[in-house]
Design a protein around this nucleic acid. Structure first.
Lengths: 349, 349
DNA sequence: TTGAAAGCGCTAACAA
DNA sequence: TTGTTAGCGCTTTCAA
C-alpha cells in the first residue's frame, strides 16, 4: 500500500531505473537518448524497468545539464476588444501543435504594452527559453533588432518591413497577393468599381495589402481614383469610410484590409438598406470568426496560419541546430474564403 | 571587445557575482532570495555586482534544486471554426498576466482531441510544470478526477458538474445568473414572450443557463411553454430554431446560450426583414468579438474572465503552498453588455 | 551575518 | 557495448 502511494508521489529517477534493470545510470540515459548504442536485450531490460517505474526524465535536471529548456517563448497579446482580429487564437494553436511535433513547448509571457522588449530580457537571462517566436513585428519590431544583437535565437512572424536587409529568419503571408485575389474575385463577378478601405499609411502591412488591390485594378486598366480610403482599424471608421465612398464614388464592391473594417461596411449597408452580396459586394481580410458567423457570411482572405507555424518551427529548429542553419524568409500565399457578402453563388457562372 | 561578446553570450553565474562582490556564493543566493538576512552594505555590494554582470539566476538550476518549475500547464484548444466562442483568447491573456504577478509562466500544450488526458501525464512525470489550469471541464472532466488521484495540483475553470462532492479547487461563472440578467433586461424593456435557444440537455452548462431564463420568467408568472428550444451550438441550428419559434410561438425576444446561436437568430431576422432590436430583441452569451462588431451590436452576457484568472491563480498559490491551502470553489457573476440587438436606448426609459 | 559542504537528476567525456 | 567520473548552477543544511 504505502509503496503505491510513494510511487505516485515520488518520481522514479535514473538511478532507480538503473538499479531495477541492473545497469549503470549512463546506460539508462543512453537508452532514453541514444537507444541505438545499446545491445537489444539490454535496451529491452531498461525499457521494461522504465515502464514498471513509470519513469520520465526530470526536465530541470536535463535542462541544467544540456543548457536547453525545450521551451519557445511567445508574447501573448489578446485580440483588441471591438475588433475582429482574432488571428492569434488560431496561430497559437498551430504553433503549439507544431512545437509538440518538434519536441518543444510554448511558454507564454505577457506584453507590457509600454516596452515591447519587456519579458524577453528576463526569459533570456534566466535561460528559461531556447528561442522566441516574435509576432508583433508590425510595430517596426525593435525586438528583432534587439534579439539579434544579443544573439538570441528567434523567428519572426512578419517581414522586417523597416529593415529589409535584416538577416534573421522570418515567415510571413503575402498580403498583396491576398488583396489581389479578393479584387480579382470581384472583377470576375462583374464588378469594376471596386473600392479599397485600408489602414493609415504608417502601416506597411496595410500598404502591402493595398498594393494588391491597386495592381489588380490597374491590370484591368480600371480607374482607382477616389476609390480608396485609409482609416483606423475600427468598425466605426470602416462604416464612415464606406458611407463617404458610396456617396462620392458609387462603388459596387469593397475590399477591406481587415474583417473589422469590412464589418463597418456591412454596418453602413445595413443602415442604407443595401443587401450585402446583392446590392454591394464586400470582402474582408483574416477570415475571422466574425466573417464566418455574420449573416450571409463575409467573404474574406484567409491566412494559412497552420503553414506559417510549420515554417516557423522549421526555421526554429534550423536556428537551434549546431551550427545554426539560418533559412531565408518565406512568404506564404493566403487563400480566399468565399461567402455570401461577395455575391450569390449563381453570379460566379 | 571580446569581453563584451562573451558577456552577451555566456550568462554570469552565482560564482561570478560572488567573486566580483567578494562574498561567497551562498551570500549571493541569500541576496537574491532572502535579502533581509544580509547586512545592508553587503547586500548593496552584491546587488551592484548583479547589476554589473546582468545576472539572473539560471532557471534550470533553480528548478532542479527547488523541485519546482514555476510553470503552469494549460491545454490550449482553439475556438471552433464557424462559432463565435473565442473566450479562450481573453481568458488566456488574463491568466498569463495574473501568473506573471504571482511569478509563474504559462506553458501551453496541445489537446489531442481523442484522449483528454494526453499531455497532462507527460508533463507531470517530467515535473515540467508545478500545476495545471483545467478549462475543458464541460466534457465531464475526467482530467479532474485523474489529476486529483495522482495528487497533481490543479485548479479548474468550471464546476465539477458530474461530481458535486469533488474537493478540488475551482472557479466558475454563474451562467444561470447571466441568463437571468439577460431575461430581466428584456422584461424591463417590455417583452413578455421571451424565447430561449440553448444547448442539448446533455450540457450541464446549457441547462444551468436555461434555468436562469426559466426562473426570471416564472418570477413574473410568465408562461414559457413552447418558448424553448435545445439545439447544437451552430449558427444554422440557431437560425432554424429561431424560425420555428417565430412561426409557432411568436416571441418578441430571444435569449441564447451562446453568441453563436444568437447570430443564427440574427440570420433568421435578416432573412425575414425583421430589424434586430426594433422588431425582435436578441441577447447572446459570451460577449465575443462577433457580438461587438456585428451591425447594431449584439447584447450579450459577459464573463468576468479577468476575475476568473485572479481567483484561479489565488487558488493555485494556495494549493502549491506547504501545507496546501485548498480554498473552496468560487462562483463569479457575469455582467450584461447592452447593445442595439436588445432595443434602442430610448426603450430603457 | 556569512561561509563550507553536499547534492538535486541528468548527460558529456572518457575509460574499460 | 557498458561503466566511471565529473559537473551543469543552484539552494538547503549546518557550522563558524
Amino acid at each position: 500500500m504505502s509503496r503505491d502511494v510513494r510511487r505516485v508521489m515520488v518520481q522514479a529517477t535514473l538511478s532507480d531505473v538503473a538499479d531495477l534493470a541492473g545497469v549503470s545510470r549512463q546506460t539508462v540515459s543512453n537508452a532514453m537518448n541514444n537507444p541505438e548504442l545499446l545491445k537489444p536485450d539490454t535496451l529491452q531490460r531498461v525499457r521494461d524497468a522504465v515502464a514498471v517505474l513509470g519513469y520520465s526524465p526530470n526536465r530541470a535536471a536535463r535542462n541544467l545539464r544540456t543548457r536547453t529548456s525545450r521551451l519557445i517563448g511567445l508574447r501573448f497579446t489578446p485580440a483588441q476588444e471591438g475588433t475582429a482580429n482574432a488571428m492569434m487564437d488560431r496561430f497559437v494553436h498551430s504553433l503549439v501543435e507544431e512545437c509538440r511535433v518538434a519536441g518543444y513547448h510554448v511558454l507564454l509571457f505577457p506584453g507590457d504594452g509600454v516596452d515591447p522588449l519587456a519579458g524577453y530580457d528576463d526569459l533570456l537571462r534566466a535561460t528559461a527559453v531556447d528561442a522566441f517566436v516574435v509576432t508583433d513585428t508590425y510595430l517596426g519590431n525593435p525586438q528583432a533588432a534587439w534579439l539579434e544583437e544579443r544573439g538570441a535565437p528567434f523567428v519572426a512572424f512578419g517581414r522586417p518591413w523597416d529593415a529589409p536587409d535584416a538577416t534573421h529568419p522570418w515567415v510571413d503571408v503575402d498580403g498583396a497577393a491576398g488583396a489581389r485575389m479578393a479584387t480579382e474575385h470581384l472583377l470576375a463577378r462583374g464588378h469594376t468599381r471596386i473600392a479599397w478601405i485600408g489602414w493609415r499609411k504608417e502601416s506597411p502591412i496595410g500598404e502591402d495589402r493595398r498594393s494588391g488591390w491597386l495592381s489588380a485594378m490597374h491590370a484591368r486598366n480600371l480607374s482607382t481614383s477616389g476609390l480608396a480610403s485609409r482609416v483606423e482599424d475600427t468598425v466605426n471608421s470602416g462604416a464612415e469610410a464606406a458611407a463617404v465612398l458610396l456617396d462620392e464614388a458609387a462603388p459596387t464592391a469593397f475590399v477591406c484590409a481587415s474583417d473589422t473594417l469590412a464589418m463597418g461596411v456591412l454596418h453602413t449597408l445595413w443602415i442604407r438598406q443595401l443587401a450585402p452580396g446583392q446590392d454591394v459586394a464586400v470582402v474582408g481580410f483574416d477570415d475571422s470568426q466574425v466573417a464566418q458567423v455574420v449573416p450571409v457570411g463575409l467573404t474574406s482572405v484567409r491566412q494559412p496560419l497552420e503553414d506559417v507555424a510549420v515554417e516557423i518551427v522549421k526555421r526554429l529548429q534550423g536556428r537551434l541546430r549546431l551550427p545554426p542553419v539560418v533559412e531565408p524568409g518565406k512568404l506564404l500565399s493566403p487563400s480566399l474564403t468565399v461567402r455570401g457578402s461577395s455575391g450569390p453563388g449563381e453570379w460566379s457562372s
